[in-house]
Design a binder for these strands. Structure first.
Length: 602
DNA sequence: CTAGGGTTAG
C-alpha cells in the first residue's frame, strides 16, 4: 500500500540535487521507518541515481540505533544494480566499519562486485573473511565467484571450482551454477562439454531452463553448427515444453543472418511474430547489422523505418552498424552524416562508433580525416582501445606513413594499452609492405620471447614480407628457425614458403616442402595448389603439373581463373597432351564456364 | 524482510 509518507519522500529524494543537508529529524528519516513494508514500495526502491543512494547511506549510518542490516543490504543492492561496483564495495566496507552484522546476503553482493570488476581474487579474499566470520558461504556466493572466473577467462579455475563444489559438497549446485559453468564452456567453444553438462542436469533436481538452452543454442550458432542448434531448439520446445523467448529468436536470427541464410532468418522472424513475441531493438539491430555487413544500406534503412513504426527507438548500436555499412560502400559523407545526426538524437557516440568511422576513413584512404576524428574522440574524453589503435595503425601504414605509425604505437604504449596479436600483425605487415623488412626484423628481435615471437601468423607475415622484398635468404632462415622457437608452421606458412621457393625458381625445394606438408599433418589446401601450380607454370617446369592436377581432382578442388589463364598459351600452342586437357576440363569450375567473358577461348 | 544467470555493434 502506498502511503502518504512514501510519496512525500519520493518528492524529497527528487529534491536532493540541491545539496540540502538533512536534519536528524527530517521527514526523510521519518519515512525510513516505514520504508520497507513487505507489500509496498520502499524509499530504497525509488532511488534512481548514485548520489541519492550515497546520501541515503550517510543518513542511515548516522542514525542511532542503526537501521537493520536488511535495509543496508537493500541499498547496497540498488547501487550494485546500477553497476557502480566500486561505490558498492566502498559502502560494504563502511557497513563493516559500522559494526553491522554482515551476512551471506551482503557478502554475496560484495563478492559479486569484486568479480564484476575483474577482481575475482579479491572476491576469494572476501570468501576467506566469510569463513573467519563463521558465515557459511552459500550457493549465491559460489555462483558469483564462478561467474567472475568465467568473466576473466579463467576457465580451468572455473571448472576446478565447479568440480570442487560438487565433490566436497560445499554447496548444492543449482540451475544458475550449471548455467554459469555452461556459459564458461561455451565461451571457450567447448560445446561438447556444455551439452554433456546439460544432460547431467537432466538427471538432477535442477532441470535445464530457457537460460541453459539459450546459452548453448547461441554457442552452437556461433560455431556454425546450425543443425545441432536447431535440434536443441526443437528439443527445448517439443520435448521440454520450454517456450522460446525473444533472446532465443535473436540468437537464431543472428546466426542465420551471419551465414547469409536470409530465407530461414525471415522464416524465424515470422515464426516469432506468430508466437506473439515481438521483436525488440536487438532483433532489429541484428537485421540492420546483417544488411550493413553486405553493404545493403537501403535494406538496413528500411528495417530502421519499420523499427520506428513499431515504436522501437534505434540506439547507438543501430547507428554504429549503419555507419559501418556506408563506410563499406565508401560513402563516407553519408557515414559522417549519420555519425553527426546521432548527437541530435541525444545519442552519444562511444569508442565503437568512433572506431567504425575511423575504420571507414582509413579503408578509404582518408587518413587526414581519420586523424582529426581520432583527436576529436580523445578530446571528448573517450579512451581509444586496442582496436581503435589497430585501425589507425593499419590506416597509416596503408598510406606509407610509417613514422606516424611508430608515433601512434608509442602513444598506445604510453596509454598503458597492451598491443594484441592483431597489432603486431598489422605492424609487421605494414613495415614489410613499405619495404622496411629490416625494421620489421629488428622489432621482431626486440620483442624477444613475447607474444610477437610466439605467433605463427606474425612469423608467416614476416617470412612472406622478406621474400617479397627480395630477401629470400632471410625468409628461409626464419622458416628454419621456427622449430627452435617451438613453433610449428601452419598451412599458410607452408604456402608462403612454397610461393617463395617458386619465386626464386627453386622448384625442387618447393616440391620437397609440398611433400612435407602432408607428412606434418597439414594436407595442402586449394591455396597450396594454386601457388605451386602457378610456380610450376611460370617456371616452365611441367614435370609435376599433371600430378598436381590429378591430386586436385581427387581432393575436389577446382582451378581459379588466374591459374587457368596461365594454361591458355600452352593449350593454344598444343603443348598439352589429351589426358592433360581432359583433366583440365574437369577442373574448370562451372561458374567460369558460364562466364560469357571466357567463352571465346579457341 | 536483503543476494545470482542468457542475446547484439569495431
Amino acid at each position: 500500500m502506498m502511503n502518504r509518507t512514501n510519496s512525500v519522500l519520493h518528492a524529497f529524494i527528487k529534491f536532493r540535487g540541491n545539496s540540502i543537508t538533512i536534519s536528524p529529524f527530517s521527514s526523510f528519516q521519518f519515512g525510513l521507518q516505514y520504508g520497507t513494508h513487505s507489500h509496498g514500495s520502499s524509499v530504497i526502491d525509488k532511488i534512481t541515481n548514485l548520489n541519492d543512494a550515497l546520501n541515503l547511506f550517510d543518513v542511515m549510518s548516522q542514525r542511532r540505533p542503526l537501521p537493520s542490516i536488511v535495509m543496508f543490504t537493500q541499498l547496497l543492492n540498488v547501487v550494485t544494480k546500477m553497476k557502480h561496483f566500486p561505490s558498492s564495495l566502498h559502502l560494504f566496507n563502511q557497513m563493516c566499519s559500522l559494526g553491522l552484522p554482515v551476512n551471506e546476503y551482503s557478502m554475496s553482493i560484495a563478492i559479486k562486485c569484486c568479480c564484476q570488476l575483474y577482481r575475482t581474487n579479491d572476491g576469494f579474499a572476501v570468501l576467506g573473511s566469510c569463513f573467519r566470520r563463521a558465515i557459511p558461504p552459500n550457493v549465491f556466493i559460489f555462483n558469483a565467484l564462478l561467474d567472475g572466473l568465467v568473466l576473466e577467462d579463467k576457465i580451468l579455475e572455473a571448472e576446478n571450482l565447479f568440480k570442487k563444489l560438487i565433490k566436497q559438497k560445499l554447496c548444492e549446485p543449482d540451475v544458475v551454477t550449471y548455467n554459469t559453468m555452461i556459459k564458461g564452456l561455451c565461451k571457450f567453444g567447448n560445446n561438447v562439454t556444455a551439452l554433456a553438462l546439460l544432460r547431467l542436469m537432466e538427471q538432477t533436481n535442477c532441470k535445464p531452463d530457457i537460460f541453459t538452452y539459450n546459452t548453448i543454442i547461441d554457442s552452437l550458432f556461433k560455431d556454425k553448427m546450425i543443425d545441432d542448434a536447431f535440434k536443441l531448439f526443437k528439443e527445448m520446445v517439443s520435448d521440454k515444453g520450454i517456450l522460446p523467448n525473444v533472446i532465443t529468436y535473436n540468437s537464431l536470427i543472428c546466426g542465420l543472418c551471419k551465414l547469409g541464410r536470409w530465407d530461414e532468418a525471415s522464416k524465424m522472424l515470422k515464426e516469432m511474430e506468430d508466437e506473439n513475441i515481438s521483436p525488440d531493438v536487438q532483433t532489429f539491430n541484428v537485421l540492420v547489422d546483417a544488411f550493413c555487413k553486405e553493404g545493403k544500406v537501403e535494406e538496413a534503412e528500411a528495417v530502421i523505418n519499420i523499427m520506428v513504426e513499431r515504436d522501437k527507438v534505434p540506439d547507438i548500436v543501430t547507428y554504429s552498424s549503419l555507419i559501418d555499412g556506408y563506410c563499406l560502400r565508401g560513402e563516407m559523407i553519408k557515414a559522417r552524416e549519420i555519425f553527426d545526426s546521432m548527437t541530435l538524437r541525444g545519442l552519444v557516440p562511444n569508442v565503437v562508433t568512433y572506431s567504425s568511422l575511423l575504420n571507414g576513413y582509413c579503408k578509404n584512404r582518408n587518413i587526414e580525416e581519420a586523424m582529426q576524428m581520432f583527436r576529436q574522440m580523445t578530446g571528448q574524453g573517450l579512451k581509444p582501445n586496442v582496436v581503435t589503435y589497430n585501425t589507425m595503425l593499419q590506416g597509416l601504414f596503408q598510406v606509407g606513413r610509417c613514422v606516424d605509425a611508430r608515433k601512434l604505437f608509442n602513444e598506445m604504449h604510453a596509454q598503458g594499452l597492451i598491443p594484441d596479436q592483431c597489432t603486431y600483425r598489422i605492424i609487421v605487415d605494414g613495415l614489410c609492405n613499405n619495404h622496411l623488412v629490416e625494421d620489421a626484423l629488428s622489432l621482431f628481435q626486440l620483442m624477444g620471447d613475447s607474444k610477437l615471437n610466439s605467433d605463427i601468423v606474425v612469423y608467416t607475415i614476416l617470412i612472406d614480407g622478406a621474400g617479397k622484398c627480395g630477401k629470400f635468404h632471410i625468409a628461409r632462415n626464419l622458416f628454419h628457425g621456427l622449430s627452435v622457437k617451438g613453433l610449428k608452421p601452419d598451412v599458410r606458412t607452408y604456402n608462403v614458403m612454397i610461393g617463395g621457393f617458386c619465386r626464386e625458381g627453386l622448384l625442387g625445394e618447393a616440391k620437397l616442402l609440398f611433400l612435407k606438408m602432408e607428412e606434418s599433418g597439414y594436407p595442402p589446401n586449394n591455396v597450396t595448389y594454386r601457388v605451386f601450380l602457378q610456380g610450376c607454370l611460370k617456371n616452365q617446369h611441367y614435370d609435376d603439373v599433371e600430378m598436381l592436377l590429378q591430386e586436385m581432382d581427387d581432393r575436389g578442388y577446382s582451378l581459379d581463373a588466374s591459374t587457368l589463364s596461365l594454361f591458355i598459351d600452352d593449350i593454344a600452342a598444343g603443348l598439352l597432351d589429351r589426358s592433360m586437357l581432359k583433366l583440365l576440363g574437369k577442373l574448370v569450375p562451372k561458374e567460369l564456364i558460364d562466364d560469357p567473358s571466357l567463352c571465346d577461348w579457341e
